[in-house]
Nucleic acid binder design. Structure first.
Lengths: 342, 342
DNA sequence: TTGTAGGCGTTATCAT
DNA sequence: ATGATAACGCCTACAA
């Protein structure tokens, strides 16, 4: 067992004393080792080890005005949609010696703002956000503070910050066209809340656009908005199927909702895709393993994370404005989509 | 559009000047509002708003030696296994005004240590870790620094820190007994790497124990260790099925590996559970939606997260030693497990 | 109730 | 190559 008493945390000065040098030299050993003669350096590092010293981040930040930290705010950590992209993002940052701080907003704009401010106060050198639509005042704040910010999961050249992602409208348009081409006319839609979610809005709008293209009246679209989650998707499915006319296909704003809907369909005795087709969006693991497989839109999550990291790091390092990038998505046809029964 | 020039970040002194008070008063308004007369306070808060001031965390930490921050290091963010528990953990912390910093270790002990030190240097008031087994020197370091630490996903009263979780050995023992009771004799196991993963070790050991109980020789167990992931589970399944004798059941260390195995089984023409049964561990969403449903061990993820948060906050606040807690798991029987074919 | 002033642990600018 | 020393922005006795 170790001693019960808490020792004071060793400081630079402690190390300096022990190694018989000044604090400046210790600092150099840690930050610019080549500016210190080898013998001195060894002595210092030895002292560091013996004392178990590790630098105080607050102090370091205060003095250096640079944290080597990037902050990210995502809507939720609870599912795979953001996890994979974020993991790639963070792996890329690690390669460059940068730490990632993650916070989540529960899909709420007010919480997102709070988290952004927290991250900024903690000295994040840059910010990674999901979606581009938010209060201009917030962008203003970030701008004044000179915090490089990047938005992912969308691509919009006109956004106030560089965006690395895909065109949600175009992506969903492709899928909706496939659906309509198979003969579906009564289309049900389960969407995430659109109010504070620009991706959700774009996706719903795309379905409407595809229907208009095909000469389908807006009244043949049956929409339910719901919170995020498998159970929520299931409940929304029930709602939709009780309406008249009953949809022959249910297009969901993301795979999680779709899997919920599919599970509920089976429970209530609907055959998928015989009685009703179901589609998703994202192509996460769930889409592959459920059965039938889920027809969905493939999003290059890892690529998005990696490129976002590279772009953001460049923005931080060079103070450059930063380049957005549009990534490609494609429709993945699996068993959950088929022509409607005559 | 906003002015292109970056304004210097406002400081306490700027706010004080603008409000015509001292920095001490501004500080009080922010931290102990009731120690300031209302009129003064309003004036100060007004100035805060106008300037868009937010406190510098580094400086605050340096001066106050308290960050209201708790750090967590999890093996990976890429899947649902830790996500749900962590989300609950963070929601509970938010309720108490505490910020959560999350880092991930990619299941590597060296990276975990690095992340722990980073978090400590950043002034985390407390630490949330997964699993209890790690280098004693690391516990020593935490102990000397006086950083309250809690381990989750395991329960072990003898661990160096309080643990809130379940008995991995007992949980897997239950499942293995079910498997054996159905008549399986040739048992294949796909485990996560055991070296730096006490949960994986306990689970494999439990399977061995159940076999011994049933008088099955250790040679009828066929083990593959693999990295984490659906694809890895698929590859491991192939390996296992090529061995002689071929297992009649494949028990996986977690649901993700199991789903990978199940997918591969279907691809290669094995009927599940007709030709081979498959089991998992964790009971994440995947287990419910794959088909057949995955027989697995249900783990109370959200409860674990919530209780861990409460316990850790208490440790931080009271400096008390902290109480571990054992949570219950139970076997969930779904279609993926059946008696072997004669 | 409010102000003054010292100190928190590092980095970075000068000297030496 | 190394050493003094002045910031960095905030908190908190202590004084008024």
């Amino acid at each position: 067992m170790t001693a019960p008493s808490t020792q004071p945390t060793p400081t630079l000065a402690d190390v300096a004393r022990r190694a018989g040098v000044s604090t400046a030299t210790v600092s150099r050993c840690l930050n610019t080792p080549d500016r210190v003669i080898e013998e001195t350096r060894n002595r210092v590092l030895e002292a560091v080890r013996e004392l178990g010293y590790s630098p105080n981040f607050g102090a370091r930040t205060l003095a250096a005005k640079r944290t080597n930290t990037i902050g990210a705010v995502i809507p939720t950590m609870e599912n795979a949609i953001f996890a994979r992209g974020l993991q790639a993002f963070q792996e890329e940052l690690r390669l460059k010696g940068i730490t990632l701080l993650v916070a989540s907003s529960s899909y709420r704009a007010d919480l997102e703002e709070e988290q952004i401010r927290t991250l900024v106060a903690r000295g994040a050198d840059g910010l990674f956000l999901i979606g581009a639509h938010r209060d201009p005042a917030l962008y203003d704040f970030l701008n004044r503070r000179g915090i490089p910010t990047l938005a992912a999961w969308v691509h919009d050249p006109d956004a106030p910050v560089p965006t690395i992602g895909f065109d949600n409208h175009a992506a969903m348009l492709d899928l909706a066209r496939e659906v309509i081409a198979r003969g579906h006319r009564r289309i049900g839609v389960i969407s995430a809340e659109q109010a504070s979610n620009d991706r959700a809005r774009a996706r719903v709008a795309a379905i409407r656009a595809a229907m208009a293209e095909a000469g389908l009246g807006a009244d043949t679209l049956s929409l339910v908005e719901t919170a995020y989650g498998i159970d929520e998707g299931a409940a929304a499915f029930d709602t939709l199927m009780q309406r008249t006319p009953r949809p022959s296909v249910v297009m969901c704003g993301n795979d999680v909702l779709a899997v919920g809907a599919m599970g509920r369909a089976k429970e209530t005795g609907y055959d998928v895709p015989g009685d009703v087709s179901i589609t998703g969006f994202d192509d996460i693991e769930l889409a592959k393993v459920c059965s039938p497989g889920l027809t969905t839109v493939h999003v290059p999550h890892r690529q998005m994370g990696t490129q976002a990291a590279q772009a953001l790091v460049a923005m931080v390092a060079e103070g450059a404005p930063g380049q957005g990038q549009r990534l490609d998505t494609y429709v993945v046809l699996r068993g959950s989509l088929a022509p409607p029964r005559a």
